[in-house]
């Protein structure tokens, strides 16, 4: 099993969730976070914003479903430039994948 943490733009969350639903992935946890990437936030004139609001989705999936899910999140969370010259902008987010050794359903206690 793998834990996917996707840190994405809050406004692209509905699109990502819709894409995952089409792939029949319903179970996930959402949380509001703030963060920045290698651009060190956003500089507007003389003001620098170092913490930008993002949304984190946490999804645990069996190993064989991970690659497909990552691709779906990627395509759904990617924004296009105003003139559609490039796909993807800084700030679209990141996807991290970590191992999960065990998962227990609390209701039944099963592994």
């Amino acid at each position: 099993m793998k834990l996917i943490r996707a840190i994405i733009r809050p406004e692209s969350t509905p699109r990502v969730i819709e894409a995952l639903e089409k792939n029949s992935i319903y179970a996930m946890t959402r949380m509001n976070v703030t963060g920045r990437g290698k651009e060190m936030g956003i500089t507007q004139g003389s003001i620098r914003y170092t913490e930008i609001p993002k949304e984190m989705l946490m999804i645990v999936l069996p190993d064989d479903a991970v690659t497909k899910a990552i691709r779906m999140i990627e395509t759904a969370a990617k924004t296009s430039a105003k003139d559609y010259s490039t796909a993807g902008n800084p700030g679209d987010g990141k996807i991290f994948v970590t191992d999960v050794e065990e998962s227990h359903t609390i209701r039944t206690g099963e592994k």
């Binding site: 834990l3 999960v100 050794e101 065990e102 998962s103 227990h104 359903t105 609390i106 209701r107």
Partner: peptide, 23 residues
């Protein structure tokens, strides 16, 4: 810890939650 969390949270209804264990 897992056993303790299970004991404190089992209601038997959907929505009781999950426990994940990662290295």
């Amino acid at each position: 810890i897992v056993q303790a969390i299970l004991n404190a949270n089992q209601t038997g209804q959907h929505g009781d939650g999950r426990i994940f264990i990662c290295p």
